[in-house]
Write a protein that binds this DNA or RNA. Structure first.
Lengths: 132, 132
DNA sequence: TTTCATGCAAACCTTTTGCAGGATA
DNA sequence: TATCCTGCAAAAGGTTTGCATGAAA
């Protein structure tokens, strides 16, 4: 693996992700970074996000809404996605370590990760749906 | 919701998906459908896949490899994805019904689905990796 | 004959990439 | 100076959509 050099942009991406807990997409991150770094490019954001993902400093969340979301919190945890507003939230559930073992079987070599995502309606959207 | 009319293409999409257990992408399905229906268009495949998904006849699997996969099996079950070859496999694990209840919390309205995907290396790719 | 579906191609959106110039070590 | 990184813009996937035609009810 190639040597990493310091880069202001990479630090900015990391910091921006660290300060928000809404699991932004690359573009959302880019939009907010542009306020402080008007010349940063979307390509750079993508490049650094994938670099940071590869080194394990951040994590990618695929929740099926058409774009990847990113999470500064790399400790194993689960997410909830609102089907109405698309919000991605952290859940306060203990990791179920035994799950990976349940998956082993004849066609499976090793299991080293599982992604558990819950879907439904967040409180706010659920309330709105009742008012209709 | 609009009324659905019979269409040969839609039936073909459904049937093609029913006969394969590899959770194909839209394009993979399109490629195999072309053998029997050389004039079917990719747009039609996409349109029908999303129609069938909306009506609940099939299910979409977002495993984070850049494209959606489709599953004829709509009963709740879990998947395994090989990080090497990208294969998506069904797992023979009982649905953990209690999971959805664990997700409830102050910011959450209702939880009605969860997606559990395991990642690792399939038997075949794992063996190959040991030989190196 | 009304409504829905199709094929085709263009448009769209997200992500990746090539390149020449700039920053870091 | 060698290597890595950036901005820019173009390209590359994957998916959606507009439109004129065709099939189903």
């Amino acid at each position: 693996m190639k040597e990493l050099k310091y880069s202001r942009q990479r630090e900015a991406v990391k910091e921006a992700l660290q300060t928000r807990f809404d699991h932004p997409t690359a573009d959302a991150l880019y939009q907010s970074l542009r306020e402080k770094y008007p010349h940063i490019s979307l390509g750079t954001v993508y490049r650094n996000l994938s670099l940071l993902t590869d080194t394990g400093s951040i994590r990618k969340i695929s929740c099926g809404d058409g774009s990847e979301h990113y999470d500064y919190n790399v400790s194993d945890h689960y997410h909830f996605v609102c089907r109405e507003c698309g919000k991605v939230m952290d859940l306060d559930i203990d990791l179920i370590r035994s799950l990976n073992d349940m998956a082993v079987g004849p066609d499976i070599g090793i299991v080293n990760f599982h992604s558990l995502i819950f879907y439904g309606y967040c409180r706010e959207c659920y309330k709105k749906s009742l008012e209709r």
